[in-house]
Amino acid sequence: MANSQRVGLTQARAAPIAGGTHRVAVGVRMTALSPWLFLAPALGLLALYLVYPALATLWFALHDRAGQDFVGAANFAWAFHDPGVRRALANNLLWLLVVPATSTALGLLAAALTERLRWGGAARTLILMPVAISFVGAAVVWRFVYDFRPEGAAQTGLLNALVVAFGGTPRAWIALPFWNSFFLMAIVIWVQTGFAMVILAAALRGIGKDTVEAARLDGANGLQIFAWIVVPQIRGTIAVVWIAITLAVLKVFDIVLAMTNGQWNTGVLANLMFDRMFRGGGHLGQGAVIALVLIGLVAPVVFWTLCRARGQGQGR
């Protein structure tokens, strides 16, 4: 990389002088050099583990199954026509519509409610707890909730037990076409709500008490104050939380793998990519194209974040 070359050159030039009488010159040179010394390990690893793979993915996308012969846009044409890719893309979009919005809304609700309680801190800890649980662990937790026994047998899954208690028919929830995706989403919402709550609770603590007080004096009720005074003030934070959850949702993989392994039409892009790359001998080109589709979905979000970061950087 350019950085390490530069470090190497400067060191070579500095070496004969060091120990000589040109102390000042060495000092100056060291100052110019030292940022790159501090940065070198990080830049090297970032280049190898993130930048190189991104470029390699572009290259693989234009090549065949084994990554050897150039095939032009054939893999892209495959992705465009393949029903599996379309299904996964549709599922991903459904996830993107449902999960960030629901998690953010529930997180905001939890933040606003716990703020008023004396035991709010303890409540927040418990609501945040799922963040620490692995997706595979969460899949076991929720498969037990969704567990299904034939009608008539004792339902040991919480959801079916509730359904039966209210006079309904027990169902195998994760095999129920279309709706099963929502039962998988519930798990991610369960994990992300705590995250949203923590960030939004901090934002709520930061808003001006005088604005709320003024609205109250004007006769606004609690709901009006929340909708018209509080929420507009934390709009930026809500957007950030929404974006962060959106990025997390695009990477969803473990949950689908552990819950259904993509069966019953629940597959998403990340799982499809994993399948194309590692199962049945693998097809590097097709896997890489799916990766590029994922990056295409991430790109606008990143662009927005970057613009926002730039704007704030100038403000400071």
Partner: peptide
């Protein structure tokens, strides 16, 4: 900031 958003599944095969 950009690298924070890169889906890491992409990196697996090249690496």
């Amino acid at each position: 900031v950009v690298l924070m958003a890169v889906p890491l599944q992409m990196a697996l095969i090249p690496l």
